[in-house]
Amino acid sequence: MSLTEAEAVFASIHETALNDLLTAFFTDRPRYLVYGSPSFVPVTTVAETTMPAIAFPGVPGGIQWRIRLGIPSIDLFKQTMQLPPELSLDPGEFGVGLDVELCLDCHRLRIDPRPPREKPNERKEEKRPKDERHPLQEVTCCRLKVFAVGHLERVMTVTGEDAIVFAVDAVEIVDIKPDRLEAVLECLLFMILQAVFAEVRLPLRALRAGAFQLIPVVGPLIEDDRIKMRGNL
């Protein structure tokens, strides 16, 4: 079988090179891996993206949070990366594994007394011993190993180039109990990963290292650990 088959031009990229492309993207633009509210990320820079805090009544300034993603590692069908049993990699799909760190800036809140105290400076003594009380302020984080599967979609880059994105279809976090907590976290990360990957638009030109012109007729397809395209010059 020829590479071009019925078309005039063929291009393909192996998952190793695809991961190099993703590493280049996230190394040059690390802000797509780190998102946080102002107490974590005061302003958007090349390194981080600032986001609003989660507004909640009675929490001054809102709930401060940060999510930090590791550089994802993509596995194109056929499967070589080990996935949790809940996920399977079908023809035409990619699998991805990455580390995720979620952090909250946890505060002890001062309760506004109602009705006002007769003696304003008088503080009510807390009954719980000091070592059992939650600290006044503490950054609390957890690290998760996250897996996902998805498919490719054709899009345009912001500069109008023909490109692909990774569309996430399902997310799995391993070993969180109870199951419903795992489901909630998976839902949260499903939305976050969809949004993050939707911003990573890799031009078709880069997938073929700038060689030849290619107007896709067939693909991009995922097969044999590669993304393949065939088309006209």
């Binding site: 071009t4 031009v9 063929f10 393909s12 073929r208 290292a209 060689a211």
Partner: peptide, 17 residues
């Protein structure tokens, strides 16, 4: 196998050249 492969058939090569 190479990481990136691009290929032209003779019809494509005709047009490219």
């Amino acid at each position: 196998m190479a990481e990136i492969i691009a290929a032209l058939d003779e019809k494509g090569a005709n047009k490219l050249l």
